[in-house]
Design a protein around this nucleic acid. Structure first.
Lengths: 126, 126
DNA sequence: ATATGTGCAAAGCATTTGCGGAGAT
DNA sequence: ATCTCCGCAAATGCTTTGCACATAT
């Protein structure tokens, strides 16, 4: 992550413009608007480098491909069952230290909420 | 899922004997003790069928391959960072309806706890 | 007897990697 | 000019699928 290239700028810009974690393929599509020749391998390599240097954090939801967003501390995520987008939830409901059996030690946790986002709430019935 | 075969019996037995969710490869290894010729394709096909008929439920943890266990209602999971095993946590810390922004509706949630299990607690320092 | 089930090998996806050529310094 | 970076294509790991043979009913 030493040289500054138009590919890397496009990838950073795509992630910056989005207000939510993006899939590698979403990053590719968005960044290709600036650099049409961009390849998926470069996206993966750049994402990996940014994660390694802790500029990005990986958002791994159950059964989903990894998403990426700029690092901003401990928080959780909301998955919209209608549109499939993932939103940040800037709140945390506790450490859950007390719900495990004796002898188990909780060090951290991940919470994913599922439902309907504000955008999809109007037209969705369920 | 109409006929009863020794392969299916071995797969069910492996899942029944384990007190925790198993990876497809773990099911294969365990079931091969009873049926050495068992192939991974049969394991996947059988797991899929059992999930479809809701005998099994899929346990998908962030960044992990899916695990399988007999269905037994809403609960959460504990991932041991030492041994990589996953344990059931028969407790639930709430519905988290209140921590999302206005306009968002929470329908369900998944919680994963990380730490050290009772087995690994003794020898693990961190 | 016949339709379902199984094992093998090939096909799919998402992600990673090797390599020769392109580009930043 | 040099060394890093890029795009392509091949490789990888997990899961699914096609097909011919085996087997439960």
């Amino acid at each position: 992550m030493e040289r500054s290239t138009k590919q890397r700028a496009a990838i950073r810009d795509a992630l910056k413009a989005a207000d939510r974690p993006l899939l590698a393929t979403e990053v590719l599509e968005l960044a290709q608007r600036a650099v049409p020749s961009l390849g998926i391998a470069t996206v993966y390599r750049t994402l990996k480098a940014l994660v390694d240097q802790e500029s990005l954090q990986v958002v791994e939801l159950p059964g989903e491909n990894p998403r990426f967003e700029f690092a901003h501390g401990h928080h959780h995520h909301f998955y919209c069952r209608d549109c499939g987008r993932v939103y940040d939830v800037h709140a945390c409901a506790g450490e859950f230290v007390d719900i495990v059996p004796a002898g188990f030690v909780v060090k951290s946790h991940e919470l994913t909420l599922y439902g309907h986002c504000a955008d999809c709430q109007g037209h969705a019935v369920a």
